[in-house]
Every structure is written in structure tokens, then in C-alpha cells.
């Protein structure tokens, strides 16, 4: 299984490549990718440098171009496709049908992956993208159980990549509008969930209040961990109870499942976190490299080492990790 690691800047990219990533994915400094945050991502110059750095060391470079252009901004996505092809990216990770259509017609040799934002949860959808745009890989949404993932692999004409570690989307990616409902901007339209400009923190007697688009979505008491505020991981009142009505602030960790993922024929494991620091990328890449190597060598006896899990726990968002939907009872 290939290890695909995130990079929000050049130091992170180098950390990923130097610590054993088989591939590294990154995006331009604008709304053409789903981690559109201030101070993050690559200028064209840095990007070329990043591609070169990866290639010189035998790693592959993927461009994340996984948001949905509207007519007014179409040119930016088209330029990004052209630049990716000219810079020698090994794959373009896209979600929008229009972008994929442009890419496969203008650059027939450009390798295309369907982003998780493309919402392909079943093999019929995958076949559509394969037959129409010649995609060679799909990143599947974090909503499928392990048996469902296996079923997709068995029937898919292309290889499957799954998320292994990092922040967890509870909703099907590419179809979640919760952020824009509160703020006007969503991953689809703007490349960010809970854009920073819409987040407001206020210290009060009750604790730290977090507002999103002016709506109070969380109050964190002193001593509690305040993660980045997304609607799906906040506490709400439903039926007279106030609780994490959608999901607790947990993050995904599938390391224990590696032998099963390997056996299922998964082609690649993706690490989430382009918005995280180079230190995160370094630690997570290092641990996952070791785990993947150990699993490839002896899957029967594979067990995550305590020190690996301790390293990962240090950088996990929230205090808990989960198998997410891979583990059926979570659903």
C-alpha cells in the first residue's frame, strides 16, 4: 500500500518526502483546493520546487484541485490544470465533472484521481468517472464500512485509496453544505469548512464561546480541549438534551486495520492534514511508514506498537480516535 501524505507548505512537503511518503499531495494558494486557509498552500514557484524535491527523491507529487468552480471563477481551475500538467505532477486529484472533462481532453496524458470530494461511494459512480474521464484512482468517502470498502474494491475498475489517519468528516464529502449554511462558504464553493473569517471566539464566565457565522455552536469550559470549530463536532440541543448530536471531536485512526485493508486490495492510505504543521507531517509520516512496512512484511502478526500510537495521540485532534465508519457500530 502506498503512503500518501499531506503538505500545506514546502517544509511539510520535505518532511513527508524525507520520512518515507510514497506520494505527497498539495494545492495552490487559492480556492481551487479544499484546504483554502490563510498562510497555507503553494505559490507556483514553490510548487515547482516541491514537485522537483519529491521527484528527486523518488516520491510522487499529486495536485489537489478538488473544489467546484462556478462560471465566474472557472478560469482559475483551468489555469491550475494547465500548470499541473506543465509542472509534471504525477496525478491531479479532482472532484468536479467539468474540471475532469477539461483535464482529460486538454491533457490526455495527465493522470487523474477522483477526490474524496467527488462523493463516489459506490462502484457504479466510479465506473462513470472511469469511463468518461479515464480516472485511475478513487479516494472513497469516509462513510463506508470495511466490508463495503472491500465490495467497492472488488467491483471497481480503478484502484482505491482510503483515509487512514487525521480529521474525520462525518458527512459524505462533496455533499456537505453545513458550513455555507452558517457562513456562506463551504468546501465546495470556497475550499474551506468553517472559514476563519466566520469564526469568533469569546471568553465568558461560562467558558470559551465559539460562534460560527454569529451562531453559538460551542461553549468550552476551562480545561476542556477546544478544537477547530466545525458544525459536525459541536454540541447542540436535540429533544431536550445538549450533546454531540452529530459527532464527538474525534479523529480517525485505522492503523489497527492495516492488515485487513491490505488484504482487501486497497492501493493507498491517505493521511489527512494539509492544514497541520511540518512537525505533524513528520511524525505521522514516520510512524505510518514504519507501520506500513511492518504490515507488508508480516501482516498476520501485525499490531500497532505502543510507541507509534503514543506518537500519533500527541498530534491527534481531540483526545480520542475512532475507526469511523470502517467499523460498522460507529454508523
Amino acid at each position: 500500500m502506498e503512503l500518501v501524505c499531506p503538505a500545506g507548505n514546502l517544509p511539510s512537503l520535505k518532511a513527508a518526502v524525507d520520512n518515507g511518503a510514497d506520494a505527497v499531495y498539495f494545492g495552490f494558494r487559492d480556492d481551487t483546493n479544499a484546504r483554502h486557509f490563510a498562510g497555507l498552500n503553494f505559490s507556483p514557484e514553490k510548487m515547482a520546487e516541491g514537485v522537483q524535491y519529491a521527484h528527486d527523491r523518488g516520491a510522487r507529487a499529486f495536485l489537489a484541485l478538488n473544489t467546484f468552480p462556478q462560471p465566474e471563477g472557472w478560469g482559475r481551475w483551468q489555469d491550475a490544470v494547465d500548470r499541473a500538467a506543465e509542472m509534471g505532477f504525477d496525478a491531479l486529484i479532482a472532484a468536479d465533472i467539468g474540471v475532469l472533462d477539461y483535464a482529460c481532453n486538454r491533457w490526455p496524458d495527465l493522470n487523474l484521481h477522483l477526490s474524496v470530494q467527488g462523493s463516489a461511494t459506490n462502484y457504479e459512480a466510479i465506473r462513470f468517472f472511469h469511463e468518461n474521464f479515464g480516472i485511475t484512482r478513487v479516494v472513497v468517502p469516509r462513510v463506508l464500512s470495511l466490508p463495503q470498502v472491500k465490495h467497492v474494491v472488488e467491483n471497481s475498475p480503478v484502484s482505491i485509496e482510503v483515509f487512514g489517519f487525521g480529521s474525520l468528516c462525518v458527512m459524505v464529502e462533496g455533499r456537505c453544505l453545513l458550513s455555507s449554511y452558517a457562513t456562506g462558504e463551504s468546501p465546495n464553493t470556497f475550499g474551506a469548512c468553517s472559514p476563519a473569517s466566520a469564526v469568533e471566539w469569546r471568553e465568558t464566565d461560562k467558558g470559551l464561546e465559539t460562534r460560527l457565522g454569529g451562531i453559538l455552536i460551542e461553549t468550552v469550559e476551562k480545561g476542556e480541549n477546544a478544537g477547530y470549530p466545525t458544525i459536525c463536532k459541536a454540541r447542540f440541543e436535540v429533544g431536550g438534551n445538549t450533546f454531540h448530536a452529530i459527532e464527538e471531536p474525534t479523529s480517525l485512526n485505522t492503523m489497527e486495520m492495516l492488515p485487513e485493508l491490505q488484504k482487501a486490495g486497497i492501493a493507498a492510505v491517505k493521511i489527512e492534514g494539509r492544514q497541520r504543521s511540518p512537525v505533524y507531517v513528520k511524525q505521522v509520516t514516520k510512524v505510518w511508514r514504519a507501520a506500513l512496512d511492518a504490515c507488508a512484511k508480516d501482516p498476520e502478526h501485525f499490531k500497532p506498537k505502543t510507541e507509534w500510537l503514543a506518537e500519533l495521540a500527541k498530534v491527534s485532534e481531540g483526545s480520542q480516535t475512532t475507526f469511523g465508519a470502517y467499523h460498522r457500530p460507529w454508523q
Partner: peptide, 15 residues
């Protein structure tokens, strides 16, 4: 009412 999101998880059951 606007359709905003879909999940593998059932939030009515969860509640």
C-alpha cells in the same frame, strides 16, 4: 427545508 448533508450515521437513531 434545504438538503444540507448526508452521512453513514443516522442522527435520529443517535439522538
Amino acid at each position: 427545508r434545504l438538503p444540507l448533508a448526508y452521512s453513514a450515521r443516522c442522527f435520529t437513531a443517535r439522538a
